[in-house]
Simulated scan of single mutants.
Amino acid sequence: MTNSSPVSGQAFEYLDNVSPEEQRRLEAVRRYRLVDQPVEDAYDRIAFVAGAIFDTPIATVSLVEQDRVWLAACQGLSGVREVGKEPGLCASVIAQDDVYVINNAAVDPRTLEHPLVRGELGLRFYAAAPIRTHDGYRLGTVNVIDNRPRDASKRQLTALEHLAAMVSDELELRLMVIRSAAAEQRMRETVH
């Protein structure tokens, strides 16, 4: 079964194993047309600032798709644009409204067996704020990663939430441009 998005005219396949709420969230991710696109400066700057605030070697702006996490921006991991959704830290973040923090992943029961913890990356610290749209969908995260355990201050976590809100604002501007371009195209087609 397919349905057409009112924003883009694209057809999305509705899958039996995806809840209606998750399907609507995925449509919200796709309406901004950021997945599979080149890195844009606005998101790259936000990732940079997140890493600077926490003094971490890695910071990303991510969008959680159905079966992958698309990195709209990534500081500290060159050439990486997507990772698998499972087992996903970003997917855990979008399941809640609050900032998600792991101070020491090597001893945190949520991450003891996680491949990013046990593998080459050696993730120890992770903090992420969900990116929420103006209509309430959690699309992804602004997150910071370090290979050493640490604590985050309340001020740092609040800054991370503000950065996630800035991504949401950028996405809304992007959507306005998409809609304006579509309206202009429709006008041109009616004139000719």
Rank of each mutant, 00 (worst) to 15 (best):
E22I: 00
L34C: 10
A28S: 08
R33V: 09
Y14I: 13
F12M: 08
D44L: 10
D41P: 13
R33I: 08
S19A: 07
Q23D: 08
Q23R: 08
R25V: 06
A28Y: 00
V18W: 03
Q23K: 08
L26Q: 02
D44H: 11
Q37P: 00
E22M: 00
E22H: 00
E22C: 00
Y43E: 00
R25H: 07
D16M: 14
R45V: 11
V35T: 07
A11Y: 02
I46R: 01
R25S: 06
D41Y: 14
E21G: 01
S19T: 12
E21V: 06
V29G: 04
E27G: 05
Y14F: 10
L26M: 07
A47R: 02
E22D: 04
E27V: 04
S8R: 07
Y32K: 03
E40L: 13
A42F: 07
V39L: 15
D41M: 15
R45S: 10
Q23W: 05
E13Y: 11
D36I: 07
E40Y: 15
A28G: 04
V29F: 06
Y32E: 01
F12Q: 01
L34R: 04
I46W: 01
A42P: 03
V35Q: 04
Q10S: 15
S8A: 11
Q37M: 07
Y14R: 12
L15F: 14
Y14V: 11
L15S: 15
P38A: 15
Y43Q: 03
R31H: 07
A28I: 00
Y32C: 06
Q37N: 02
E22Y: 04
S19V: 06
D41T: 14
V29N: 05
I46F: 04
V18K: 03
L34P: 07
S8G: 12
